[in-house]
Write a protein that binds this DNA or RNA. Structure first.
Lengths: 130, 130
DNA sequence: ATTGACTGTTACGTAAAAGTCAAATATTCT
DNA sequence: AGAATATTTGACTTTTACGTAACAGTCAAT
């Protein structure tokens, strides 16, 4: 079965457009934990999916620390009540933050539309005189 | 008329929760151009609005260079045809980038919802035994 | 005239997230 | 086995976006 397929580090760097340094850095930071054959890293598809999430967080603009936090949130929620409430608070914070960002993005998209229209108008003006 | 109201630098820092260092830095970087009375900076409401846009760009995760570029796009579109096409291309690029980011955000929001549900479930489990 | 709040400039410092380079191993291909 | 290729670790460097310190000028109020 192809279930046990490994990805080498360079396969992943090529697929996602990141450097090997980046992947090693993420491992140092405790974001990913690829297996080893000797010293060589072997990535499973679970690692691959995790990397996808990390890079999504990166694109959004989260710091490593924030990404780590979100990853932990995905894992099992803690059994202790206080921890659980803390976690739910953090989830709430992240959610507000993301909603604000989404709003910012939508406003900026509108402004880009306006800017494009202005360009088209100007283009028409020039086009006429060409 | 209150039309000519000035904002001092600290008024703006308080309103937007940024430091004076940040505003001076943005001026150094050519993002804003407050007037001067002697050496003292005087901000008009146009500067204030511009600052709002800058901070929105910052929240989205744009670099200073990108923010500067977007600001320039908002200004008058250039008269020269080549420039105009370049600008429209950049607008298109930014738009794709922002749409990707919005998608990333929406996916992450969904995952946060899942994580919260898991927390609630766990909370119920604990609550029962409390 | 002095105090205190605000402002200015200049210059150095810093944290995050990799990039870059070197030297040593490991793996793959023939 | 031996050459060619890929990978690892470690150290040093870079870039961005300010923070921070040091020191001086401005202005209103006491």
């Amino acid at each position: 079965m192809a279930v046990n397929k490994y990805y080498t580090i360079t396969e992943l760097t090529r697929e996602f457009g990141v450097s090997t340094r980046t992947l090693r850095f993420y491992e140092d930071e405790g974001l990913i934990h690829p297996e080893r054959r000797g010293r060589t890293r072997l990535f499973r598809s679970a690692d691959r999916r995790l990397l996808q999430e990390i890079l999504r967080g990166r694109r959004i603009g989260f710091t490593i620390a924030e990404i780590r936090e979100i990853i932990n949130v995905y894992k099992e929620p803690p059994g202790e009540l206080g921890q659980l409430k803390l976690m739910m608070n953090r989830i709430d914070e992240k959610r507000s933050e993301l909603r604000q960002k989404r709003k910012d993005i939508e406003e900026t998209l509108e402004e880009l539309d306006n800017a494009e229209e202005a360009c088209l108008t100007r283009l028409a003006e020039i086009g006429v005189s060409t």
